[in-house]
């Protein structure tokens, strides 16, 4: 339709913003590297001080790439959930998906040694953590879907999501109470969230996970658009409800679960970004929204990570706190300004 053209400028803007956020992100960190040296290193691949080169190519660039995957992927999973649940407040955090991942991680990090007497070190490689968190988020997602079919009321669904959060928090604190200080610390650090501690294999694995999520989302574009009318209308348009629902749920679970496993439970990106995106891209067409939401999420995550780095300091703030500090006021602002949230 003719309104596609009008988004070309918006896409150019948002891509420029992504580039800017990316440069900003890799130019800041605990070690001060002059901007000129950074550019030389980026374009020539070499710079006079070898340690700078190492930091840029082996730490900052993978970290920025991870931030893009994490932010974009979480935002995309939020968009999918909002359309699937026909609810503007849906998102991996609100619906308890992130809590599920936390529970999986907590059970592994603190529970395994507790119940089995294993030295937890045996189990504690990162792949195991990723699997545990993904399984946790998938289980919660499945329960939420089952309940969503039973209770038609979307408000009830959100409350169920919140209850899941409480249950998880309770189990986690019970585990924490009995857990050793060392294991507890590992869990706490994981729950702060981070995009910087991934090995190159983990980054590749995460790219694969996010890639699958993106492909499944693109394949679901037409069905997502039909879901905007409601399920009965979608059915009358020839959409196979079960199949498309399942594809969307798998995409969401893979994105939210996989990302949470590697980067920790990062709040508000999934909920807030789709709404922020619609301020710039005033459409419901998922062909536009999917790339736009992904780019927007990536930008937000790069910026949050830049702030978390506390430029020119050796301290790193927990990124989960930063996204909440930015995300929660944004949601409040949107609610107050528009009086009600539409999706």
């Amino acid at each position: 339709m003719q309104h596609y053209k009008s988004y070309h400028i918006s896409f150019l803007l948002i891509i420029a913003a992504l580039l800017f956020a990316w440069i900003l992100n890799i130019s800041s960190g605990s070690v001060t590297i002059p901007f000129k040296a950074l550019l030389t290193s980026l374009f020539n691949g070499k710079v006079e001080i070898e340690s700078w080169n190492y930091i840029i190519w082996n730490y900052r660039i993978p970290k920025a790439f991870t931030a893009i995957l994490v932010g974009g992927g979480l935002a995309l999973s939020g968009l999918l959930m909002q359309t699937l649940f026909r609810n503007p407040l849906a998102g991996p955090f609100v619906l308890g998906i992130s809590s599920g991942a936390s529970l999986g991680a907590a059970l592994l990090l603190m529970g395994a040694s507790l119940f089995t007497g294993f030295t937890s070190l045996l189990l504690l490689n990162d792949a195991a953590l990723a699997i545990a968190a993904s399984v946790g988020s998938f289980l919660v997602l499945l329960v939420v879907i089952l309940l969503a079919n039973m209770v038609k009321d979307t408000m009830a669904l959100l409350i169920i999501g919140l209850m899941f959060g409480s249950i998880t928090a309770a189990i986690v604190s019970v585990l924490a109470y009995f857990s050793s200080a060392e294991n507890l610390q590992r869990f706490i650090f994981w729950s702060f969230g981070s995009v910087g501690n991934l090995s190159s294999q983990q980054v590749i694995l995460l790219s694969g996970i996010v890639g699958i999520g993106i492909i499944l989302s693109i394949l679901s574009i037409k069905k997502l658009n039909a879901f905007l009318l409601g399920e009965n209308y979608a059915l009358s348009l020839g959409v196979s409800l079960k199949k498309s629902r399942l594809t969307i749920i798998i995409a969401t679970g893979i994105l939210a679960g996989g990302i949470t496993a590697f980067a920790g439970p990062i709040a508000f990106v999934g909920l807030a970004v789709p709404h922020l995106t619609r301020q710039l891209f005033d459409t419901m067409e998922h062909r536009i929204l999917i790339p736009a939401v992904f780019l927007y999420g990536a930008i937000l995550m790069l910026l949050c990570d830049t702030i978390a780095q506390l430029p020119n300091s050796v301290n790193v703030l927990p990124i989960n706190a930063i996204t909440s500090l930015i995300g929660a006021p944004v949601v409040i602002w949107l609610l107050v300004r528009k009086r009600k949230m539409l999706f």
Partner: peptide
């Protein structure tokens, strides 16, 4: 079909909503 239930997303424009009929 035209049902009594409202469209799930009221953020659709008139043209976008009608275009969904072509699915």
């Amino acid at each position: 079909l035209v049902l009594t239930e409202q469209p799930a997303s009221k953020n659709l424009t008139v043209e976008e909503l009608i275009a969904l009929g072509r699915q």
